[in-house]
Write a protein that binds this DNA or RNA. Sequence first.
DNA 1: CCATAGACTTGATGTTATAGAT
DNA 2: ATCTATAACATCAAGTCTATGG
Length: 572
Amino acid sequence: KNKKEEEEKWKWWEEERYTDGSKWRFLEHKGPVFAPPYEPLPDNVRFFYDGKNMKLSAPAEEVATFFAKMLDHEYTTKDIFRKNFFKDWRKEMTPEEKSKLTDLNKCNFSEMNEYFKAQSEAKKQMSKEEKQKIKEENERVLQEYGYCIMDNHKERIGNFRIEPPGLFRGRGDHPKMGMLKRRIRPEDIIINCSKDSKQPKPPPGTRWKEVRHDNKVTWLVSWTENIQGSIKYIMLNPSSRIKGEKDWQKYETARRLKKCVDRIRAQYRDDWKSKEMRIRQRAVALYFIDKLALRAGNEKEEGETADTVGCCSLRVEHIKLYPKIDEQEYVVEFDFLGKDSIRYYNKIPVEKRVFKNLQLFLENKQPEDDLFDRLNTSILNKHLQELMDGLTAKVFRTYNASITLQQQLKELTCPDDSIPAKILSYNRANRAVAILCNHQRAPPKTFEKSMQNLQTKIDEKQKQLSTARKQLKTAKADHKASHDDKSKKAVEVKRKAVQRIEEQLMKLQVQATDREENKQIALGTSKLNYLDPRISVAWCKKWGIPVEKIYNKTQREKFAWAIDMAEDDYEF
DNA sequence: CCATAGACTTGATGTTATAGAT
DNA sequence: ATCTATAACATCAAGTCTATGG
C-alpha cells in the first residue's frame, strides 16, 4: 500500500511551468479555521485588585488570562511589556473597571495562573482514550481544512488556522511587546479562490470581508494584523508544487551566480578604487555580503520594531577598526544585533583597500550615523540586477551556504568511515554553514546535565568493553587449552560481544562530539532554506547513506523534487 | 525618485510526539 | 510499560524584495 502511494505521488517537477506570471488556473479550499471562542473562567477562580476579590467582565477577563498565562515568563517583568499590556487591557474594560483598575502592580493574577497550570496538568493526565479522541478530532479538522485543490491536484495547506488572540511577543527590545493581538473575525478575512470553485462559507451569521479571484498570487486567505498593520496569509505547505518550484528556482539562481561570481568579485574589488564614494560604499558592502554572508539590511521604521541592522543599515557604532591587533593587520570588529535580535560578533582581517575605505567612510561621523550613507538595499539590488539577471543580495547567502556545504562534504567525508562517522561529517559540514550564516540558538536548558548523562554512559560502556575484552581473552585461553568445539563457539560469542560494544561506544562518542559542537548552533534553518538539497541527496547516494538519516519525513516531502532528480554525481 | 503596501522567505522558539532508556 | 530526552512539528515574528502610486 505504502509503495503504491509512493508511486502515485505527483512529480510536478517533470511538468511545464506557467510562463505568464499566473500561479494557478483553479483554486478551491474551505477557508480558515478560527480560534475557539473565549471560555469564561469558573467562579472559583478569582482575580484580586489591591487585595480585594473582583469579578471581571468577559472581555476584560479574557485579556487578563493572556497575561495570567505568561506570569512565569520573563516578558511579564519587562517595563515596556507591562505598560503596553495595561494600556491595551484598559481598552477592553467596562467604565467601572477602568476607573477601579489603575495600577497593574496591584493586580493579582495568581489564581488564574494556577488554574491554567492545573488545566495543562490535567491534560497531560488524560486517559489514552481521551487523548485518542482529541487526536482524531484534530485529524478530522486537518482532513477538512488542511487541503485545497490547486489546478488538478490536492495540496497540503501550511497554516490553515487563524492565529488566536494573545499578547504580542516581539523579539529583542521590541517597543510593542505586550500589546493585545486582537481576535480575528470572518469580517476581517479576505478569501482568494478561483471563480469556478466552490467558495468557502463563512461561519453562520457572518460574512467575509471580501472574496477575490487573483491567480497572480499564491495565498488562499489573508487578514491585516493589528500590531504592525501588516498582512498575514494562509499559504501552501513547502511540499506543494507552488513552493517547491520557487525553491528549486532559488537554487538555480544561486548556481548561475556560481558561474559569474569570479567576474563579480573582480568588479567589486576594482570598485574599491572608484572615484565615486557611492560606488566604493556599494563595493565594500557587497564584499561584506559575499565574504561574511550578511543580510541585505533594509531600512526599518524607527520605534515600530526592535533596533536591528543588516549590511546596508550598519551604523558607525557597529564596527571597530584595528590597523594591527594580535599579529594581524587591518582587522574589522563587527558587533551588532541582526535579524531576531541575534548578536553578530566577528573579528576579521580584511583587504587593505577595504580597511582604508572604511576609515574614509567613518570620517566626521557620529556613532549613530550610517556607515554606508550613500547606499541602501534598493541601490545595491539594482546594481546586482545589472550584474546578473535575478541577482539580489540574498542570493549570495544561498550561494555561499551551498558551495560551503559541497566543499566541506568533499573535505570531511572519509571513504572508510562507518555510517555514523560519515553522518558526523555531514553534520560538521552543515555546522560550518550555520556558523557562516550566524544561525544561533540558546543552549538548551538541560544541556550540561544531558552532556553529563552521556559521559556517564560512555564511561560505563568503556568499563563494559574492558570486561568483555577480558572475557574474550579468557575464552581464547580456554580454547587453546581444550581445542574443543564448545570453547571455539565461546570465543566467537565473546568476539562478537566485544565488537558490538566497540560499535556502541563509538556511536556514543560520536554523539557526544556532535552534541558538544552543536551547543549554540542551530542547523535547521540552513538545512531548510540555504542548502541546495541536491548536494545532500548526491552525497547520500555516493556513500550509500539512506536519505532518511539526513532528512526526516517533512524534509523529504519538501525536498521530494531533489531526492527524485539528483544523482550521485550532482554538482552544485 | 521615494514611500508604502504587498507577497513571499527566513528564523528562533514554543509545543507535541516519539524513540530509546529503564 | 513507563519515563524522559530529543526530534519533529507548529507558530508566528521578522526579514527580503517587488510592485504601485504619488
